[in-house]
Design a protein around this nucleic acid. Structure first.
Length: 383
RNA sequence: GGGCGGUUGGCGGAGCAGCUAACGCACCACACUGUAAAUGUGGCGACCUCUGGUCUUCGGGGGUGCAAGUCCCUCACCGCCCA
């Protein structure tokens, strides 16, 4: 099966669409949530767990797997699918997010949407700043490994080469994910670089069976977002990623998507990188997004926050010690069908490994179920 | 009976005259959006007019000193050794 994207239904009420994405390792229904398996593992889960949860597609990370165990190891294993025994569709991120997370993100202790009072005046310098683990040049990025301090140069060419060795169905162009703190000048310069890198990625990509997605940057600046959308859309990418800073609040994110979506080619799948809180997903779909990947459900699960219909439940709170109900009464997940909050509370406090699995199962089930509902709503014309 | 060592907040454990009784664990909250993350931040004696302030506390009692968890005396308890 070759890579193909087909729109099944377009909403009349919004930019939402339901589609089918075909890849060499199977087809998925969109809109879809891509579970994050950074180091070739959705933390605490087996591929079988994922299948039981209804996960159709996962995302692994070039940077992490390049550092450990090494792209050569995975290539020798027969590719990522075989290496981790995941037979379904798979995406790899290019390492572009690490340019941010190990760079400005680490220095300013900020996430890609985050914002804290007092940060208004903190702005990265125009040129390469005092970043600890990342050195950005026009040619590429020198990473200082967060594992052992060794130096590694990533260029667009190298990222693509690694991603070809890993062998995911969808790969991403190497980019610089910009920080919510990046000012206009920095973002503009960075954008030029990312666009140049996008061309270089297209040029060196050889494997036909892999789809390559370009990434739109431009931060929270309208003209830059529009410029980037037009530029990336004009290139022969198989799909479009929307990356970078999406502002400081959820409101900003929707504002930015409103600039972008009307300029996107309709026939290509759109992947909104790194977004995936339950309260974001439906609205992003309405803004024309097809694919989402996010550590939210899995990370929060591990840290004691369980997703429920009306928000969140922090299983670490003392009130759950003797709460013998399921996390959520009507939830159909394995965890809710078989275990109580009291038990999860105990496992969490005792740091029992089973906690991580049960909690992750619940949060992923919740998120994947939400996406299924959203898709259904598009198909019946409700959304 | 004698000698030596010890007793610090729920637990472990620094401090051995002077400034906020360090630090860890446990506990109580909060945060987290292309995973540096089973992580991070704050709180954890009491009270109040709570962005601050007042008082209290290092086994009990007494003493010396401007100042004591810290030095001295004494009692209690714990441990080890001797008889």
């Amino acid at each position: 099966m070759q890579f193909r994207f087909k729109i099944v239904k377009k909403s009349k009420k919004s930019w939402a669409r339901a589609g089918i994405l075909e890849t060499p390792h199977g087809r998925i229904e969109t809109p879809a949530f891509v579970s994050v398996a950074t180091q070739a593992s959705v933390k605490s889960l087996t591929p079988e767990d994922l299948k039981n949860l209804g996960a159709e597609i996962i995302l692994a990370n070039t940077y992490h797997l390049y550092l450990r165990p090494g792209a050569d190891v995975i290539k020798k294993a027969g590719g990522l699918h075989k290496f981790m025994n995941w037979p379904g569709p798979m995406v790899t991120d290019s390492g572009g997010f690490q340019v941010f997370s190990l760079g400005w993100g680490k220095v300013h202790q900020i996430g890609k949407i985050g914002w804290f009072p007092g940060y208004e005046e903190v702005r990265p310098p125009r040129e390469v700043g005092p970043l600890k683990l990342v050195k950005i040049t026009d040619d590429g990025v020198e990473f200082t490994s967060h594992l052992d301090g060794s130096k590694h140069i990533f260029t667009p060419e190298k990222s693509i080469k690694i991603q070809e060795d890993l062998g995911a169905d969808i790969i991403f162009a190497f980019d610089e994910c910009t920080s919510p703190l990046a000012d206009y000048e920095y973002t503009k310069k960075s954008l030029k670089k990312t666009h140049n890198w996008a061309l270089r990625c297209l040029k060196v990509k050889k494997k036909r069976e892999q789809a390559l997605f370009g990434i739109i940057q431009g931060g929270e600046y309208k003209d830059l977002r529009e410029e980037s959308t037009k530029f990336i859309s004009s290139l022969p990418f198989d799909g479009i990623g929307i990356g970078g800073s999406l502002g400081k609040t959820q409101k900003d994110m929707f504002k930015i998507l409103k600039w972008i979506t009307p300029l996107l080619p309709e026939e290509k799948p759109r992947h909104l990188l790194g977004i995936g809180r339950p309260e974001d997903l439906e609205n992003c779909v309405k803004h024309g997004m097809d694919l989402f990947d996010c550590v939210w459900p899995t990370r929060l699960a591990r840290r004691g926050t369980l997703l429920i219909k009306n928000g969140r439940l922090n299983i670490g709170n003392s009130r759950y010690i003797k709460d013998f109900h399921a996390i959520e009464k009507k939830c159909g997940c394995y965890t809710c069908q078989n275990f109580t909050r009291a038990y999860l509370s105990h496992l969490f406090r005792a740091k029992e490994l089973l906690y991580y699995r049960l909690a992750t199962i619940h949060n992923l089930y919740f998120t994947l179920g939400l996406m299924q509902k959203i898709r259904k709503d598009i198909l019946v014309g409700k959304l």
